[in-house]
Design a protein around this nucleic acid. Structure first.
Lengths: 137, 137
DNA sequence: GTTACTGCAAAAACTTTGCATTATT
DNA sequence: AATAATGCAAAGTTTTTGCAGTAAC
């Protein structure tokens, strides 16, 4: 089931695992896959099963504090973005490092280019990919 | 293996299956998943195994004549776009119908917003999602 | 005749679910 | 004490690969 959480609408508890996952994500501006996050936690001595990682990533995405990108056609990567407003990402294809950016004028123009078609409930994805300076060497 | 085709760099042959897949894609401006394409071919009396559908979609994507969008976090949908130049899509979340659009000024502004970071080999995805007039009823 | 394509069955990769146990409140 | 979270094992999805047979050139 898509955006639904486990069980129902109960209060989220603070646990070692949840906090470890949040802390890891908050500690860098890199996009990571669920599996990478799981491995990094393990090698840092934290315990968090892969299942738990997936569950919390989904919760964070639902809460809007974690954003995702499609790295290639197959993999989804996750990044902590806090409560910050609408924005987009410049992402390194090699290492996942990313920078947030926003251009209000472009937003406006795109909305305009599209409104003539009569679509409602509009939303958009804009991700820019490249190779970061570090990975160019 | 990411963008590589089966075998190596041999000449592509015209086959019943390849042509049927191409024809189906060309017959509408809708994004479809591989599985949908497979089912539609079957119910149209054409024979094309799911494996073959996946293989040709990959080839078409490599050739640049088919574009993809990520419908949600899990599913990829494919659409024939011919040889046409760089553009983006306004896609209906419900039925997959789509319109191409382009705004050169936005392209320029986004490129600018991003160039300061020193990334190379830039590329970007811009997909707008909504609900088309037909699906609103 | 040579070589690419097909499609089944099997494997691979990734994600979700069932459920008994454990931790949090 | 009540209930949410955990994590293993198992199942579910989606996509890819091996390979023997078939079709295109």
């Amino acid at each position: 089931m898509g955006g639904m959480r486990q069980g129902g609408a109960h209060r989220v508890r603070s646990t070692l695992q949840r906090d470890a996952i949040a802390r890891l994500l908050q500690s860098s501006d890199r996009f990571r896959t669920a599996q990478e996050i799981h491995l990094q936690l393990r090698s840092a001595g934290e315990t968090a099963g892969l299942t738990t990682v997936y569950r919390h990533l989904q919760i964070f995405v639902d809460e809007g504090v974690v954003h995702t990108v499609r790295l290639d056609d197959r993999q989804i990567a996750y990044r902590w973005c806090g409560q910050s407003a609408h924005h987009h990402h410049l992402v390194c294809r090699r290492c996942g490092v990313s920078h947030e950016f926003i251009d209000a004028e472009s937003e406006r123009r795109i909305a305009q280019a599209v409104e003539i078609q009569g679509f409602t409930e509009l939303d958009h994805n804009l991700d820019v990919f490249g190779v970061c300076p570090k990975c160019q060497q």
